[in-house]
Simulated scan of single mutants.
Amino acid sequence: MAGGLAAGLVAGTATCTATQGGLMMGLAGDGHGRDPALVAWFLAGRLASYGAAGALLGLLGSAVSPPPQARAVLLVAAGLTVVAYAVRIMRRGRAACAPATPTAQVRNAARYRAPLLGAATILVPCGVTLGIEMLAVSSGSPVAGAAAMAGFVVGTAPAFALLGYVLRHVSRTRLARLAGVVAVAAGLWTVGAGLNLGGWLSAPAPAAGPGLAAARMVDGTQSVTVWATREGYRPAMVSARAGVPVEVVFKVADRGCTGTVTIDGRDVPLPATVRLPPQPPGTLRYVCGMGMYTGFIDFS
């Protein structure tokens, strides 16, 4: 639990609020986003879903972790949901400036929606979340797994509470439209991350010239070294020979969302060495667990 708490406070605050905070836009519409208790309900739903997921991961291991393709679909769906909430807030921007008292029916509906939105954040994992999930898997205990995930939620709770405070006050002013524009951009970014994670974006043409890093041969096997940094993978593109086995040695320069890589259809925590069978001519894409940063190996 202490490990999850530390990860939430130190590393998860920025990445999780950026990735999952858009779902809180659903609390700021219809005039009922002014209720501060809704943020508490949101965080309670988040704590419940993360604790349950941690218990399952600790009990059953990685078998219950969604594969990269499934996470990609969830990211696209979450991004579209954020865009829908943002458009709704922009359309209600003027009305939000006027004092309004939500009806009891609206308040009750919001109380149900808030924990559901909080629980849904487990479906949109940030890079640090993936690391905590792997910690829960390695614990081999449902109690330890739930404790790690719960500690992580507690560590990120202050940032989400602050975001909820900002959204409540912005929704009462003409800044609601500006906040909506920012949220639309965040939603589209999430959609793009999902498309990238799913491999549904076209790969760029391989760069030409002497600056392109090349694999080296070691005992009949090609070897590629890639560094994971906070800004992405370096080198971002490497050339290799098709039809020859290759091993990709991932090393970690900086801890961040690039610490988990999705390659050849599976998630790999770094540092690690990934061995690939002979590949056909073409470009192999690998991405971080959030779909933010991409690297390529060009086989020719």
Score class of each variant (00 low, 15 high):
V39K: 09
A40L: 15
A40R: 08
A40F: 11
W41V: 02
F42S: 04
A44H: 05
A44W: 05
G45S: 05
L47P: 10
S49D: 01
G51F: 09
A53P: 02
G54C: 05
G54A: 06
A55I: 07
A55E: 09
L56K: 04
L56G: 11
L56Y: 04
L59M: 08
G61F: 07
V64I: 12
P66N: 12
P66H: 11
P66E: 13
P67Y: 02
P68L: 14
Q69G: 12
Q69L: 13
A70Y: 13
A70S: 15
A70D: 11
R71C: 12
A72T: 10
A72W: 07
A72F: 02
L74P: 06
L74G: 06
L74F: 13
L75G: 07
G79L: 10
G79V: 08
L80G: 13
L80N: 02
T81N: 00
T81H: 03
A86W: 11
V87T: 10
I89C: 12
I89R: 15
M90K: 06
R91M: 11
R94K: 13
A95K: 11
A96C: 08
A96P: 02
C97P: 01
C97S: 14
C97E: 15
C97R: 14
A98S: 12
A100L: 10
T101Q: 13
T101V: 14
T101F: 08
P102C: 03
T103A: 11
A104N: 07
A104W: 05
Q105H: 13
Q105V: 14
Q105K: 12
R107C: 05
R107A: 10
N108S: 09
N108R: 06
A109Y: 03
A110H: 06
R111C: 00
Y112S: 08
Y112R: 10
R113P: 05
L116G: 01
L117N: 01
L117F: 03
G118F: 03
G118S: 00
A119R: 01
A120I: 01
T121C: 07
T121H: 02
L123K: 04
L123E: 00
L123W: 03
C126N: 05
G127H: 08
G127W: 04
V128K: 00
V128Q: 02
V128G: 01
T129V: 10
L130Y: 10
L130N: 15
I132L: 10
A136K: 08
S139C: 13
S141K: 04
S141C: 08
V143E: 10
V143P: 04
A147M: 13
M149Q: 13
M149F: 07
A150C: 10
A150K: 07
A150G: 15
G151I: 01
G151E: 01
F152G: 00
F152W: 00
G155V: 01
T156A: 02
T156G: 05
T156I: 06
T156P: 00
P158M: 10
A159Q: 06
F160Y: 15
A161R: 12
A161C: 13
A161D: 12
